[in-house]
């Protein structure tokens, strides 16, 4: 009885009936008989998991603290370039490169967030947007470091205990492991003192300040965590895709990730996962189904989806229950 009253987010890890079937599906996916489509399906599944991590990471700022971040792809880019360049220049292991990328992401998250603390919602959104555009410009123009528009090819595959993971199912399990790690972190934080402080800030910043929540401190923690998760996803992406290019980190990507959490329900962890699970395979299907001249316009669906969701279901498909 008590379980039913609990929000989906809290049941995600505590309700065996809920998580065991899900876990089973994810784990056996690479071994399903898919014939020739196999590698392709695993690739889409891996991509979906990457976007799940991104959605969970973005969700921390707009979902938990109520501030609209329009430049999340900037951290994805920072992570991808940090990991990609360290790998190409120094040939370091994934397990060294990945934490460094996440740390670098967190650092930029703090640097970006600190001056915006006193800004209101829409100005915060503009600053985040401008920041990510500046990052892309720097990546594009600082050829000596990033090779600019030539991109960074030939990034080494992920490795584990000195073994190179060169099978698609291996990288698939790897990103699933990272997803579980991130998921566990955000689920735990959500129901901790930190999470409650964020929700208080989201509902009413001034009231939160008045009852003794250190708004500045908790916002900074949210910025750092969110950025670190984005950079982690980027670092994995660079090692998995083995090529990075400034055009992969355009504004649209930020909007796509935002769309995932708007669709699922802002602030809802399950919502972020469901959003990615539905929309990312959908983009891939649209890419195949639509004739090539239209496939570029598939973002049209996302624009429309955002507008429709905001109009009729502003809380998303799986809204967060409020007490």
């Amino acid at each position: 009885m008590k379980n039913k009253a609990m929000h989906l987010d809290d049941r995600l890890f505590s309700d065996k009936k809920l998580y065991l079937p899900l876990l089973a599906v994810v784990l056996i996916l690479p071994w399903l008989p898919m014939g020739i489509a196999g590698p392709y399906v695993i690739r889409i599944a891996t991509l979906t998991l990457v976007y799940m991590v991104l959605a969970l990471g973005l969700n921390v700022v707009p979902g938990f603290t109520g501030l609209l971040d329009l430049g999340y792809v900037g951290f994805f880019g920072i992570g991808a370039y940090t990991a990609g360049l360290l790998t190409v220049y120094y040939h370091w292991s994934l397990w060294l490169v990945l934490p460094l990328a996440a740390l670098n992401g967190a650092l930029w998250g703090i640097l970006r967030g600190a001056p915006t603390l006193r800004l209101s919602d829409d100005y915060f959104a503009i600053v985040t947007f401008g920041f990510s555009e500046l990052i892309i410009l720097v990546i594009k123009n600082e050829l000596w470091l990033t090779r600019g528009p030539m991109g960074v090819p030939g990034i080494a595959r992920p490795d584990l205990f000195g073994i190179v993971l060169n099978q698609p199912w291996q990288t698939y399990y790897l990103i699933f492991f990272f997803l579980l790690l991130v998921l566990w972190t955000v689920v735990r934080i959500r129901s901790s003192r930190l999470g409650r402080a964020w929700f208080a800030i989201r509902e009413d910043e001034i009231a939160a300040e008045c009852v003794g929540v250190n708004v500045a401190r908790y916002k900074i923690i949210a910025f750092a965590l969110s950025a670190a998760i984005g950079a982690l996803a980027g670092a994995f992406y660079a090692r998995w895709f083995r090529f990075i290019h400034p055009d992969m980190f355009k504004f649209w990507e930020s909007i796509l990730i935002l769309c995932l959490i708007v669709f699922g329900g802002m602030g809802s962890i399950t919502g972020a996962l469901v959003g990615a699970l539905v929309l990312i395979p959908l983009t891939e299907i649209l890419r195949i189904v639509l004739p090539p001249e239209f496939s570029n316009a598939r973002y049209l669906v996302f624009g429309l989806l955002i507008v429709v969701m905001m109009r009729w279901r502003p809380a998303g498909l799986l809204p967060v229950e409020k007490d």
Partner: peptide, 11 residues
């Protein structure tokens, strides 16, 4: 409204 505006822009 802000998110809707972004959605319209993309659309």
């Amino acid at each position: 409204a802000l998110i809707t505006a972004i959605g319209m822009s993309i659309f």
